[in-house]
Nucleic acid binder design. Structure first.
Lengths: 115, 115
DNA sequence: TTAATACTAAAGTAATTGCCTAACTATTTT
DNA sequence: AAAATAGTTAGGCAATTACTTTAGTATTAA
């Protein structure tokens, strides 16, 4: 009943579904109406609407209705929070591996028990 | 009952949970035993084990048991599939926005209905 | 003005997820 | 050998998810 998921929960969660990734892939080429997104997916229109809701809630997609057509598009900065988090992690363990490498190199140059 | 989710389903799905991200954040600083991961999380040890299973299944974490201690660490290339997918999308719509910008600029330079 | 289009709302269902407790196995430590 | 430690297995339960069908509401086209 509590709907206070973090940005990252919603972002990664939204991207974890293949139907939603298909929608995002289509929208990365440019805006499209709901019905076109639906035409790419083997499911009912209401289901597509629900997926769209998840993507909007995650801040990945925006949409606007004009007349009876709702046009969807990728939001600017759609993935930035996810990219940030991943980059921070990668940086962290790459640095650690660097330090480990340096340490191992120093160990082989001047071993503790050298004569 | 079918467990044939794609790499990306499992990757993004694994990262969509805050407990699992906490584990990954810890492991990005270096290897740790299960019990240390558990000490960071407000849940039972069996639950931590399940999260660990999800992370391993997603290829994000590896682990090895020596004696009675299981040591976990980040897998090399942990995030690469996710990074690839995101970069491909971003590249796609950035290119599209570039073309759109070029088009709009050309339109304002030589308008159709100019004198 | 009727009919077709493009969504939207509501409610139901089966599977999955994220947690738990209780009981168990293997390895140290005392 | 007995006790403590570190993890594992099994089973259960409530919430969430990913769908469905049915029945609407606006808009636009004929």
């Amino acid at each position: 009943m509590l709907n206070q998921k973090s940005d990252l929960n919603r972002l990664f969660g939204a991207l974890s579904d293949p139907a939603r990734r298909t929608m995002v892939e289509r929208l990365s080429r440019g805006p499209a109406p709901v019905s076109e997104l639906a035409s790419l997916l083997p499911m009912s229109l209401p289901s597509v609407m629900q997926h769209l809701g998840v993507l909007e809630n995650a801040g990945i997609v925006r949409s606007e209705k004009v007349g009876r057509v709702r046009t969807c598009s990728i939001a600017p900065e759609a993935f930035s929070a996810a990219e940030h988090w991943i980059n921070a992690r990668r940086t962290q363990w790459e640095q650690r591996l660097d330090r480990l490498g340096t340490y191992l190199a120093s160990q082989s140059e001047e071993p503790d028990d050298a004569p």
